[in-house]
């Protein structure tokens, strides 16, 4: 069972995760009329910016985060922003949306100038997240775990980050056992998504590089 402290940590993280979302006005824009490739690209860029701001607000609320070295806080966010965004978009994609919306979003992404090479693994990731049928608590904790990865570049006090991440992992592990007693592999499957996220992150960096070149 979760200890009282762990239960409090979980509730706190969940609340922060639910509170900090992309503003609905921004999300609605994605479902409005068709845009050109360039406008699509700009819209997705604007979305990404908003996404990062939301992510920072959530991260500030992760207990212990603000006590980390300030430059380490930036390094953690810089190193994880892309992965946390993929995770959040995967959740948006797998949520039940009104008829036709999923297709419209897919279309917009496909028409934003990204190559198929990057789009296919991204949609595969969305599907793999969908298959896990994650609970909101699991999304919140997995996002926090992604952000608190001590092995990101330029982290000075890795030990301090590791301690925070371990506390989250412990809560997630217990939560999975409590909520999925029939699936002993559930926790391991969730952690497996972190490896997939690293791969997507790598693809994303390659994509940015190819954009810069052109």
């Amino acid at each position: 069972e979760l200890s009282q402290d762990q239960q409090a940590l979980l509730s706190y993280i969940l609340e922060a995760y639910n509170k900090h979302r992309i503003p609905p006005d921004m999300a609605k824009k994605l479902l409005q009329e068709q845009f050109s490739t360039e406008e699509n690209f700009l819209l997705l860029t604007e979305m990404a910016t908003s996404h990062v701001q939301v992510l920072v607000e959530f991260t500030k609320n992760i207990p212990g985060f603000q006590s980390l070295d300030h430059e380490d806080q930036i390094a953690l966010l810089k190193g994880s922003a892309v992965e946390a965004m993929f995770l959040r978009s995967a959740q948006a994609f797998t949520r039940k949306m009104p008829h036709g919306h999923t297709e419209m979003l897919e279309e917009r992404i496909r028409k934003s100038g990204m190559s198929e090479k990057f789009i296919v693994p991204m949609f595969n990731f969305y599907k793999s997240i969908g298959g896990l049928q994650m609970m909101q608590e699991e999304h919140a904790l997995l996002t926090a775990i992604t952000i608190l990865s001590p092995d990101r570049p330029y982290i000075k006090d890795q030990k301090a980050v590791e301690l925070l991440q371990e506390a989250m992992l412990e809560v997630l592990s217990k939560f999975c056992k409590l909520k999925h007693p029939q699936e002993p592999q559930h926790f391991a499957r969730l952690l497996g998504r972190l490896t997939e996220l690293r791969t997507l992150h790598h693809h994303h960096a390659e994509m940015l590089e190819s954009w810069r070149m052109s």
Partner: peptide, 21 residues
């Protein structure tokens, strides 16, 4: 516009709590 800022700038600003600007 914010879309012209780099990732690190956006993070630094948001960490300082100037998102609402």
């Amino acid at each position: 516009p914010a879309s012209n800022l780099g990732l690190e700038d956006i993070i630094r600003k948001a960490l300082m709590g100037t998102v609402e600007e």
